[in-house]
Design a protein around this nucleic acid. Structure first.
Lengths: 200, 200
DNA sequence: CCTACCGATCGGTAGG
DNA sequence: CCTACCGATCGGTAGG
């Protein structure tokens, strides 16, 4: 039984998850080890794992937290905009900002984790896949309603645009993290507009 | 001293490296463990690590092998083509084929390893970065000479085109490996042509 | 949330 | 390229 109150336990849990997302952005979700979190946080291993039960549950909690932070940073600000091109570009630009100035040590959490788990089985793989597909559906809907609004070329294929749109933040993350290319964010913004067939 | 001849030692080394690249495509280069390779290959751990000296050297050897295989699959066939658009499109299409039907269990080795090591220090990070930059230079040169040949719109910015061109195989790998999207290769081919401003 | 502990596996080495 | 071994760390548990 914990000696701390429920409120203190929740704060501890949040600190563990915050550290886990940071470590995962650098070393991947498999690189998040209970011993390392314990050492980083000045806790015992039993204290770290106690609230989660298993490493897989801790990984899921980190994935949940990072997904929520992503949506808040990229989708929530755009939700205020009018549906159509203004909202779609707001999403794209916020996404570029998020990848260019990520809240984690190792850059975009999602890029790190989605490539890490793309070909592995198990519950974390399924969770990553589901989160990604949810986001894809959101983007697909925004692109389709932008076409409906008459804001995009009528011959634009929404699935083709979605494929290209999604690829850009991945290329951006590599340009920044691997090559340190400071001009990449501007190129990504230009690329998003080219994909949509709108003027820069 | 090994009991085997030099030729046998070389064959053993090749088998170790081949298994290592396969494992790395799924579990990353850190997921390549000496014990697992030994078990997969029916060898002792000392036998696996003996020819390399350290895990980092084994990782480097796997990286070298995968880089060589990539160049042979993507660049070598295109080298026969005329410089300009035919060669550039041959590179792009071979790249799409390579990502769509990769010779490794876990899909594109490069995508897995470059995101794994993008924000870590150390010799493997440096090697990944150098290999990537070499390939970028090759692509940059092909794009520039295609513009010089008059095969592309004169207002095309080669660095912008390079950024977009490179992003596509990354998006393709995710669409295939994470989402199992069988229409993604065709979309990637279309995207490469759109990036270059040529008709489909 | 701690101490103390478990079996398994990690990278690597000595010696043949 | 093998056996036998090293200290360190892994995820996790018992008991408080």
């Amino acid at each position: 039984m914990p000696r701390n109150s429920a409120a203190e336990a929740r704060k501890t849990r949040e600190a563990i998850v915050a550290r886990a997302t940071d470590v995962a952005s650098v070393a991947g979700l498999e690189g998040v080890t209970i011993g390392r979190l314990a050492s980083d946080l000045g806790m015992s291993k039993a204290g770290v794992i106690g609230q989660f039960g298993s490493k897989a549950e801790l990984q899921m909690a980190a994935l949940d937290a990072a997904s929520q932070a992503f949506v808040e940073a990229v989708w929530t600000p755009a939700a205020d905009k009018a549906p159509g091109l203004p909202r779609l570009l707001a999403i794209g630009d916020a996404w570029v900002d998020y990848v260019a100035r990520p809240p984690y040590e190792g850059g975009c959490f999602w890029t790190a984790v989605s490539t890490e788990f793309d070909t592995r089985g198990g519950p974390v793989h399924e969770a990553v896949r589901e989160r990604g597909q949810q986001w894809r559906k959101v983007l697909r809907r925004e692109i389709a309603s932008t076409i409906d609004a008459g804001d995009l070329p009528t011959d634009l294929d929404p699935d083709q645009a979605l494929f290209e749109f999604e690829s850009i933040p991945m290329g951006l993350n590599q340009s920044i993290q691997l090559y340190g290319d400071t001009r990449a964010p501007a190129r990504a913004r230009t690329a998003l507009r080219r994909v949509l067939g709108v003027e820069t």
